[in-house]
């Protein structure tokens, strides 16, 4: 499907707990996001005060009139039933990874495989936050990690608190959607 103006798109933000999904949606949503954060008692897994248990929801209107509905998933595997629900009808997935985590690469493989399985025909774009990339080598490792699973996805070094960084992920996803569109759609668009 080609991305044209005056249409609605659904994009899902996925990734492990603490990767910045809620922050990313807050950074770009035109309206105050709907949040389902509660106190986090599992400080051993991730030392943060709150955690999303159902979804985040925000909205973004692009310059061409495209309305993007932004859904954030809970990160923990026990909420995987929400992943399936939220991925229904999604145009693509933005996978966020905490680059400072010692489990970053294994998290990437696990979540990329899981969400690719849920959305096999939909593009995946990867944002690595808190990464210490000095020469790009680390990003190559992330790209290689997903490629080793047969998944092709662009990888970006991002600060999800920065609107421009999150928009870059969304624009990349939209570019992939356009590139995947049949010729007829391009001609019509």
């Amino acid at each position: 499907m080609i991305v044209t103006s005056d249409q609605e798109l659904k994009i899902v933000f996925a990734g492990p707990m603490g990767a910045g999904k809620t922050t990313a949606i807050r950074a770009i949503s035109d309206t105050p996001p709907i949040s389902t954060e509660v106190d986090n008692i599992d400080r051993a897994l991730c030392d943060k005060e709150s955690t999303t248990v159902a979804l985040d929801y925000g909205q973004l209107l692009l310059q061409d009139g495209t309305a993007v509905r932004l859904y954030g998933t809970p990160g923990q595997e026990r909420f995987s039933f929400m992943w399936e629900i939220l991925c229904g009808g999604a145009m693509g997935v933005i996978l966020l990874i905490d680059g400072s985590s010692s489990a970053a690469l294994s998290d990437l493989r696990t979540y990329a495989e899981t969400f690719h399985r849920l959305n096999p025909n939909q593009p995946l774009v990867i944002g690595v936050g808190r990464a210490t990339c000095t020469d790009g080598r680390q990003l190559d490792e992330y790209a290689d990690a997903v490629a080793s699973r047969g998944i092709v996805a662009p990888v970006f070094d991002v600060d999800v608190r920065q609107r421009e960084d999150v928009l870059l992920l969304i624009e990349t996803l939209l570019c992939i959607l356009e590139a995947q569109a049949p010729e007829a759609d391009h001609a019509a668009g």
């Binding site: 389902t36 954060e37 248990v53 159902a54 026990r78 909420f79 039933f81």
Partner: peptide
């Protein structure tokens, strides 16, 4: 897990 999600959604 589902009850906590639904409760958070209902809130």
């Amino acid at each position: 897990a589902m009850s906590s999600s639904l409760q958070a959604l209902s809130e």
